[in-house]
Design a protein around this nucleic acid. Structure first.
Lengths: 245, 245
DNA sequence: CTGTGATGCGAACACTGTACGCAGAGCGGA
DNA sequence: TCCGCTCTGCGTACAGTGTTCGCATCACAG
């Protein structure tokens, strides 16, 4: 307190030495926080996101974030809703409802695979996702299925998207473990193949039914695409039977 | 060290005062640890399980557990496999494949709802669940679908169980938030209803398509049962079309 | 009686989410 | 020019986490 200003220990706190508020990252705002959180989640996975690390990336202290976000759970909720905006749902007056639903389902899947933490968070809270983007996603789905002529659109939506969520969750988990290995998916599959064959050797039907032949393992991404498309066709066929002629 | 034994400070460590190893909980074993972990997970949810609390419930220190289990993740893996034994899959020679698959799907669902943390853990790791019970579950599924005559049983299994997993995940998340409220599901729904109607009022098709009418909200558990059954029928219908006649 | 290997555990480390209270900045009014 | 007043950032602290390490204790083999 009585220390003379000029002999103060370095660094001297002063208006001139104090870092100017960065203009490219003008301030700590809720939007900036959510954006950076999504970037970290995408890059390093869900368990790598901590309030301290997030604060550091924004040139801020950890506790500063709590001025704009009540809690970490709320931050995750905001991140989910932000990402929900990426899901594309065709307009309700699309001529071909099957193509339109296929598009919406595929868009959900690619979004979930682009942000592999999405399904995890969705499975954790379930409710309370009443964010505007998620609501408008649901609304556009309802419009699409209603226009398609389903007498109970919400049941049809639940059927299709339970499938989509289940498949996307499984795929996202798989991609996460692949990413953790540091290898490409093809490399990882190749390294895993002998183990998989060995462990399933003791199970007759698994060995016979398994798709783990080396021929198919060459392009695992395409295999996943086909598998998703196949199941979706199954569900849509079943749904088509319930459409009033 | 040089302290005389009779004047040692209380409590005197002695063979006689030392607690006899409890016979009803004879020792710390891997099985006992997994069993107790499952009990805690079922009772208090996934975030309530910590190694220290688990140790305390077993009259043991937290770090003692690491003699029998390499890591907490491995413990969760063991818990998943233990619980996978509860899933019932009818024998492959069942006369009615639809009834058999419906039984297996329903058994998976009830197991997932009895242990609401199951879907969470499954979505987190995806791979690496090569435990004996989970493998035998998959094997019996493969046997069932093969016997039913599906040319690509693994694709059919993926289609059905992606749906089952997706629906179960959503339901488990819902039940978890209900449980956290301390109310019964019916009470919770009743309290939530005005909010749900208000928020969906701004969305035309959601308001029209939503099942949130007070009449149906009387028995939400039955509503969930019906919804699950409906979607499952849809998937099975679609699958039946692919069965060689 | 003497190792010897398995088992339990207290202390410690590097983290986590978050509550609290202080410091300073910007600003409207006297 | 100064006084409050609100808003924002942050250092400190607390209770809790998973896990490592080294020491003490035990049952049992030689």
């Amino acid at each position: 307190m009585s220390r003379s200003r000029t002999t103060d220990r370095n660094p001297i706190p002063s208006v001139w030495t104090r870092e100017q508020r960065r203009t490219d990252q003008p301030a700590l705002s809720r939007d900036a926080i959510v954006r950076e959180a999504i970037a970290m989640l995408d890059a390093d996975g869900i368990e790598a996101l901590s309030m301290r690390k997030l604060g550091a990336r924004l040139n801020a202290g950890a506790t500063s974030l709590y001025r704009h976000v009540a809690t970490k759970d709320e931050l995750m909720e905001l991140a989910v809703d932000e990402v929900a905006a990426e899901i594309h749902v065709p307009p309700a007056d699309s001529p071909d409802w099957r193509a339109a639903v296929t598009e919406a389902a595929g868009s959900f899947r690619t979004t979930a695979l682009r942000h592999p933490w999405l399904t995890l968070v969705l499975g954790q809270a379930g409710l309370a996702y009443l964010g505007p983007n998620y609501m408008s996603f649901s609304e556009r789905l309802a419009a699409l299925f209603t226009a398609a002529g389903f007498p109970e659109p919400s049941r049809a939506i639940d059927a299709v998207f339970s499938y989509v969520i289940g498949m996307s969750t499984t795929e996202a988990a798989w991609l996460t473990t692949v990413a953790r290995s540091g290898e490409s998916e093809t490399e990882f599959v190749a390294r895993l193949l002998p183990t998989a064959q060995q462990v399933s050797a003791g199970y007759d039907h698994l060995a016979a039914a398994g798709p783990e032949t080396s021929a198919q393992a060459a392009d695992p991404a395409k295999l996943r695409d086909d598998k998703f498309a196949y199941g979706l066709e199954v569900v849509l066929d079943g749904l088509a039977l319930r459409l009033p002629t």
